[in-house]
C-alpha cells in the first residue's frame, strides 16, 4: 500500500508539469481553432517555458523568489497529498496556502497593477473557497471518508450523490483556471486593465515557475474532477478521464463564448451557484443519510 502511495505521489510530481503543459497546449490549439485561427503547436507552452528560463531576471523585491518558490512547493505538496491518497481536506488547505503565497509575491512588488490584482485575487479566493470546502464535505457525506484512498474505493461514483456539487465545482473551476468570464485577477491574454494581474511584475524564470505551478494546480484540480467519477470498479477510470477531458473542453468553450465579468458579479454569482447547487445538494444528501 505504501509503495503505491509513493509511486502515485512521485508520478504526480514528475508527470504533472508535462500533462499540465500539454493540456495548456491543447487549450491554446482548441481556442485558436474556435477563433478560426490555425494556432500554435501543441508543444508551444513548453517552448515558452524554455525561453522564459533564458531571460534576464529583474527582481523588484528579493523576497519574491522565496514567495513564488513557496507557491510552487505548496501546490506540489497539496497535489502530492491528494494523489498519494491522503486527506482531501488537508490537501485543499495546502492549496489555499499556496494561493496565499502567490498573493504575497504579487503584493511585495509595490506595482499598482499587481497590488490591485492581488486584492482581486483575494476576492476570487473568497468566491471559490466556500464551494471548495463544500465539495470536501460532499465527498465525506457521499463516501464517509476524507481520505482519497477510501473515496476511490467506494461502491458508487460520488457524482451520483453529488451532481449539484459537481456543477458548483465546475463553475468555480472556471475561476481557478482563470478562464474568461472570471479571469479578473489575471487573464491568459493580457488585454485587460490589470495588464497581467498578479504576475505583472514577475519576469523570466520567476514567471516560468508560476506557470509551472499553475500546471501542477490544474492537474490537481482536474484530479478532483476525476474523483467525482472514480469508484471501486476499474472501468470507472477511463470514464473519469473522459469526464475530465469533457470538463476541460467545456472550460475552453466557456472561455471563448463569454465576456469578462466584473469582480462583484463574480463574487455574487459564485456564491449563488454554491448556495443553489451545493447547498441544495447538501440538504438532500443530509436528508438521505438521516432517513436511510
Amino acid at each position: 500500500m505504501n509503495t503505491t502511495r509513493l509511486l502515485c505521489c512521485l508520478g504526480y510530481i514528475l508527470l504533472a508539469p508535462f500533462i499540465g503543459g500539454l493540456l495548456d497546449g491543447i487549450d491554446r490549439k482548441l481556442s485558436a481553432r474556435m477563433q478560426g485561427r490555425t494556432g500554435p503547436s501543441i508543444l508551444q507552452p513548453f517552448y515558452d517555458i524554455i525561453k522564459l528560463f533564458h531571460k534576464q531576471i529583474f527582481l523588484v523585491n528579493h523576497s519574491q523568489f522565496f514567495l513564488v518558490g513557496s507557491y510552487l512547493v505548496f501546490v506540489i505538496f497539496s497535489g502530492a497529498l491528494m494523489f498519494a491518497g491522503y486527506d482531501l481536506l488537508m490537501s485543499f488547505f495546502a492549496l489555499t496556502t499556496a494561493a496565499m503565497f502567490l498573493v504575497l509575491a504579487s503584493c511585495s512588488t509595490h506595482s499598482p497593477f499587481s497590488a490591485m490584482a492581488s486584492q482581486r485575487e483575494l476576492l476570487q479566493m473568497m468566491s471559490y473557497e466556500p464551494m471548495v470546502l463544500l465539495a470536501c464535505v460532499g465527498f465525506y457525506l457521499a463516501t464517509g471518508s476524507f481520505q482519497v484512498s477510501d473515496i476511490i474505493q467506494s461502491n458508487l461514483s460520488p457524482i451520483v450523490f453529488l451532481p449539484g456539487f459537481f456543477i458548483g465545482f465546475v463553475y468555480i473551476l472556471t475561476i481557478k483556471m482563470r478562464k474568461s468570464p472570471f479571469d479578473i485577477s489575471t487573464a491568459h491574454h493580457a488585454h485587460q486593465e490589470m495588464v497581467r494581474g498578479v504576475t505583472t511584475e514577475m519576469v523570466g524564470s520567476l514567471y516560468a515557475i508560476t506557470q509551472i505551478a499553475e500546471w501542477y494546480e490544474n492537474v490537481m484540480l482536474l484530479g478532483i474532477v476525476a474523483l467525482f467519477f472514480i469508484n471501486g470498479n476499474p472501468i470507472s477510470w477511463p470514464l473519469a478521464i473522459l469526464g475530465v477531458l469533457f470538463v476541460y473542453f467545456l472550460e475552453t468553450l466557456i472561455d471563448n463564448t463569454t465576456a469578462r465579468l466584473k469582480w462583484s458579479k463574480v463574487l455574487s454569482s459564485a456564491w449563488l451557484v454554491t448556495l443553489l447547487f451545493g447547498g441544495l445538494n447538501l440538504l438532500v444528501l443530509d436528508l438521505m443519510i438521516k432517513y436511510r
Binding site: 477563433q35 479571469d183 465576456a259 469578462r260
Partner: peptide
C-alpha cells in the same frame, strides 16, 4: 471592444 471586455473569439470574428 470585444477585446476590451475579454471576449477574444468575438474579437477575432470581427476582424475576420
Amino acid at each position: 471592444l470585444a477585446d476590451a471586455f475579454g471576449f477574444e473569439s468575438l474579437f477575432m470574428q470581427s476582424w475576420r
